[in-house]
Design a binder for these strands. Structure first.
Lengths: 143, 143
DNA sequence: GGACACTACATGCACGTGCATTCATTGCAA
DNA sequence: TTGCAATGAATGCACGTGCATGTAGTGTCC
């Protein structure tokens, strides 16, 4: 077993650390700022956004929980509880599927759409600030 | 307030989603495989690696908890407990700083060094598999 | 049609995380 | 020297997460 990395491995490690730095910086900033100013976590915003995108085609579009899980990086249980939180906040409603009564359809409420529209500028601003610039200084990232 | 993203904003969102996909895929794979085969989480491995790197200069090199926190993306409390877990597993030892008795120095034990050397090939293999290839299919990432 | 495997979602539980706080120690200033 | 703010690290606590499981509904094969 080699003691040192090959150049290729060292490159992968550097790439991975860079990815970790960017991810930490951006996700921490999103969580903190969206949370403080709009009462939304990063994943909550992500789910609202996906619902809004679904509604672009037809208003009152419904998404299955399963479809959301495919796109947000959460386990099925975590997503179920996240939807529960959104529902308790009145941003989303659960409705029965008529064709498959095991399924649940998630509908964006007017309040949910409004909350998303309010939060979006800040979300984009954070992305521009953290992703737009050059390399990240790992020591500036705090959790 | 605009209803749609500008092209620049849409690019940022796409970039961010790509980053999220890669991060989720890689970190989940690392956590799962390192956990199953070596009893290490992703961050645990990361801390061991930083300690080993510190030891390259001089064997029995000590790192302050603070220095580790600068480089691993964990809060001070999370890092404190992570070190507690490593210590309980005998991979690491806490020692008093002689010059500043508030500080704690983390020393890699022989067992810790060995565990790291055993786990490293798998770590590199996962990186090569998840970072080396082309774009990520978000639907293949599970949590 | 009855039994059974399968799917969609919810929930109990253990665990890792961050925040706020605490404790011990240090450095500085009066 | 005393007093006090600042620092390094540990800990109580609340919370979000994943895993395993439970529950309800669907589809299939006999």
């Amino acid at each position: 077993m080699a003691e040192l990395d090959s150049p290729a491995e060292a490159g992968l490690v550097a790439q991975w650390r860079e990815l970790l730095n960017r991810h930490a910086e951006t996700s921490c900033a999103l969580d903190r700022e969206l949370g403080e100013k709009h009462g939304l976590g990063m994943s909550e915003f992500e789910v609202l956004e996906r619902l809004v995108e679904g509604c672009i085609v037809d208003r009152s579009h419904r998404l299955r929980v399963q479809e959301l899980a495919d796109v947000v990086h959460l386990s099925q249980s975590a997503l179920s509880r996240l939807i529960g939180r959104l529902e308790k906040g009145g941003l989303v409603a659960r409705e029965m599927c008529v064709d498959d009564r095991r399924g649940i359809q998630i509908v964006l409420t007017d309040a949910g759409r409004e909350r998303y529209q309010q939060a979006r500028p800040l979300h984009r601003e954070v992305l521009a600030r953290t992703l737009g610039g050059g390399p990240v200084d790992p020591c500036t990232v705090r959790n």
